[in-house]
Design a protein around this nucleic acid. Structure first.
Lengths: 317, 317
DNA sequence: CACGGCTCTCGACAAAAGTCAAACTGGCAT
DNA sequence: ATGCCAGTTTGACTTTTGTCGAGAGCCGTG
């Protein structure tokens, strides 16, 4: 297949249509092809990021509530997805907003850390395509051969694909059975280098996990419900990039955390822009923990969660 | 006029349509308005930069010729508008390309210097809208009460308008009758400050002018054809931001230059990204002068000009 | 060299988006 | 209170765009 002429054609069609504002039939006659082909090329152009359509997320930051939250939580920016306003699936709404925000935060040449979870995968799924050749997307934590489709490497690769960026995966299990083995694996050059470089990321994207028995880490088999119960007794408050954090946002001192292959919380905190996205209202406590730990500079949440956070912050002060 | 609810509606419509991918009738029923209104809101959204549609200019840099020119002229990037490829007005084509390139180079928070001329105005005219609130567009040179519509302040304002940016004009004549008056005016705080700040721009946009009798500066009355003839004898090779440069790209030592109120060439050279756009083939010599003077880091030209430049560079070496 | 299997392309139809004049709204001056 | 104006909104119409199945070209294979 002659890929180059095809690419050229797509590009030219997109150029004439979007930049010059010609109609599809005019483009077709310019390029001596049928209008149907032009329509198809244009779809491809949108799908490959040759054409970029983005909507400003202004509206969601302009919100009074968002401003108050920024001040109260000392965050760089907060976006709030309205909930009862128009009748759409609110969690999709949050993901769509998060995807837009994410694309707005990405700059050329950036290195981006991506964790995993249903939320991150949903965001990847609704994210529009872009053409950021010199961007690198790195995986923040080890893999899990989960029955679910949203594995860490898939999240990373999907986002890289959408961005036309380079995806950097590392293939280690998220959690090992012994601490010794985990230490050994972390010392492996391939793994070491990737983990060491995480602090150099410009942007991170993650959500936070719950610590109850239907938590994501439990469903994926990283922890048994029983183990999770024990950890909760020991002060577990949330999950970040596969690691258990306490209510203060510190890594919980426990065997599990020592057996995990993932970006350290301190390296995550080195990342300038940490975009946290929370879809479910049930993640209130975990989110508080993550906020306490300084694991988030940019936040995307739904309206009801935003109100709860603000209430909490006001009571605390 | 209730501007706020209207803005909100435009934003919501744009959000549902572009980010969520709903159809216009679906958006209409969500928002309880007619589909016709939705169509109107969407047009407004595009016109105000709430929605951004941009096409990658990759294709034009990918060109072999562009790469060769980058190397030969030691430029950061070169874009070449194809000419005999599809039958459009080539000079419009260059302007459309330049506008896209310009938008690609602008970052949030940037300060942008804009000169004047037909080329710059044409670019402003075809430039699509964007929503860059914290961008400042500054005028690089004094005004001319020309009969033509592309005055420096208009170029600046139009580009600022398209970008939703702040436009910073300064109202001084481009050229004065005596050097003493020019010195005095340059010493005025309003003018001084603006001129002093030009080196802090992140991006500059200008073209280069010819030095013949139908040059832009002559048509605008800044110079008489006779004066221009004398300057040409004295080594004038081009015009940058209203100033005459010689073949080496240095400001020509002449009374006219001393009477001009404009950004100094050295302050222009302090600007990191200097985007030069040349539409007419007749500007070959002036462009060479500008290149020699290091007044350009990013270049947009047509294919025939590109070939001439490359030929010239190869002969020189 | 004939045969699937493949992708690319086109024409025709259906769906969606754009447009416009007419109706409507709410604020303001008379 | 009334009429007027500027700006919205709408329904009906037209134009433009998206889609889909049929057909054409192309290659490697038997």
């Amino acid at each position: 297949m002659a890929i180059r002429p095809a690419e050229q054609l797509i590009h030219k069609a997109a150029w004439l249509y979007y930049a010059h504002g010609l109609r599809q039939d005019q483009v077709a006659s310019q390029l001596n092809i049928s209008r149907a082909s032009v329509a198809m090329y244009l779809r491809k152009a949108r799908e490959t990021g040759i054409v970029n359509i983005s909507t400003s997320t202004q509206l969601f930051t302009d919100d009074v509530l968002a401003r108050q939250l920024e001040d109260a939580l000392k965050l760089d920016a907060v976006w709030i997805a309205p909930e009862n306003d128009y009748v759409l699936d609110p969690s999709t709404d949050i993901a769509v907003l998060a995807a837009s925000v994410f694309l707005e935060l990405v700059k050329k040449g950036d290195r981006i850390g991506v964790a995993w979870g249903r939320t991150v995968y949903t965001i990847a799924d609704v994210m529009s395509y872009a053409d950021l050749q010199d961007v690198t997307v790195v995986q923040l934590c080890g893999n899990l051969g989960a029955p679910y489709s949203y594995r860490p490497d898939q999240c990373t690769m999907e986002i890289a694909r959408r961005l036309n960026a380079k995806g950097l995966n590392f293939y280690a299990p998220l959690v090992l059975t012994t601490e010794a083995l985990a230490d050994g694996l972390r010392a492996e050059p391939v793994i070491r280098e990737q983990l060491a470089d995480i602090g150099n990321c410009d942007l991170a994207l993650y959500s936070v996990g719950t610590v109850d028995t239907d938590s994501h880490v439990v469903k994926c088999g990283a922890l048994s419900p029983g183990e999770m119960g024990v950890l909760r007794e020991a002060g577990a408050a949330g999950v970040i990039a596969g690691q258990i954090i306490d209510a203060a946002g510190k890594a919980l001192d426990c065997s599990y955390n020592r057996r995990v292959i993932s970006a350290s919380l301190s390296s995550l905190r080195q990342i300038e822009k940490r975009l946290m996205v929370v879809q479910e209202d049930s993640k209130f406590e975990p989110l508080l923990a993550a906020l306490a730990g300084g694991l988030c500079t940019h936040l995307v949440v739904g309206a009801s969660m935003a109100r709860r956070l603000l209430d909490h912050a006001e009571k605390a002060s």
